[in-house]
Amino acid sequence: MKRIWFYVIVCLQVLFLILMSISYYTMDTWGESIRLKTAPVDPRDPFYGDFVTLSYEVEMVPADKWNVSADIGSGEKIYLLLEPDEKNLYTLVKASAEKPEVSEEEVVLPARLDWHDPQRGVYMVDIGLDRYFIEEGTGQQYEQNREDLIVEVILAPWGQKKIDSVTKAE
């Protein structure tokens, strides 16, 4: 066994873990911060030990904003184009299968199709931020008004995203 290569492999593993950690911290500097409004959560009990289940308004795409061909399957990737409203909350402009062009204010959020509800005419998508980890025992403060929370999300240029904070809507 060549010792140098062994330590190269070990160092790469350490580097991988450290990069995971560093990229999280550098997101605050390089990333873009957007505010999203939450939506009611189904199932009823959103507490699962140490995290809160969140759902967002932008995850419900009405049919008229759905610019994706009909043969898309569940789990496939789509892009949400968002723009800020007057309260600086980001709302949906449209959903598309290809990455859309963005103007000054707009941002693009990748998501996956969950399911299509033809009765209500909405497409449910998942932006992958449905878990907010909290310290144990602090779930109570999120329990009331949990459909009325403002989630501050940071989007990194390299595609990573995280929940920065969860606050009650004013």
């Binding site: 873990l17 995971m20 950690s21 999280y24 996956r112 992958g128 931020l129 980890f133 995280k162």
Partner: peptide
Amino acid sequence: IFGAGIFLTGQMYHFTSF
């Protein structure tokens, strides 16, 4: 430990894997 480390780090820093 490396494998557990990936998942623990991911959980610590709220990574979502696709």
